[in-house]
């Protein structure tokens, strides 16, 4: 039940999280999953993450290129585009505007 609900929330906001993580520089799938986990969102499986990255790429919010890492195999690195930046600003604000009243209502409910 809990993980189901978390999954539903994530589905709505994972693209924003990814865009936000890419704001400060390029990254690749596995690293993004680790960053999300480290931030406390919980483990994100590849099966969830990569379709989101592909959709962002297709809609032009990120670009991708294959590059050899300093060590290890070639990886597909994603980078934020200007459109992606704009979408992050726009979508992020909308999310915050949505989440603030939800938090307020739920807080009251929990505390009460």
């Amino acid at each position: 039940m809990d993980s189901d609900r978390r999954g539903q929330w994530l589905r709505g906001v994972l693209d924003l999280c990814v865009l936000a993580l890419l704001r400060d520089g390029e990254s690749y799938g596995y690293q993004l999953a680790q960053s999300l986990d480290a931030a406390g969102v919980g483990p994100i499986q590849g099966g969830t993450l990569y379709p989101v990255l592909l959709r962002l790429q297709r809609t032009g919010l990120v670009t991708a290129r294959w590059r050899e890492g300093d060590s290890g195999p070639a990886r597909k690195y994603y980078q934020l585009t200007d459109d992606g930046r704009a979408a992050l600003r726009h979508g992020g604000n909308a999310w915050l505007a949505f989440v603030a009243p939800v938090t307020g209502i739920v807080t009251k409910g929990v505390d009460g």
């Binding site: 690749y28 799938g29 596995y30 999953a33 499986q45 590849g46 099966g47 990569y50 592909l54 294959w66 290890g72 195999p73 070639a74 990886r75 597909k76």
Partner: peptide, 20 residues
């Protein structure tokens, strides 16, 4: 897509049936 999945599995390990 296949190469990316392969890279992910190599770096993170794990059962592909759970990861993907």
């Amino acid at each position: 897509v296949v190469a990316e999945a392969a890279t992910h599995l190599r770096e993170g390990g794990g059962d592909p049936w759970l990861v993907f």
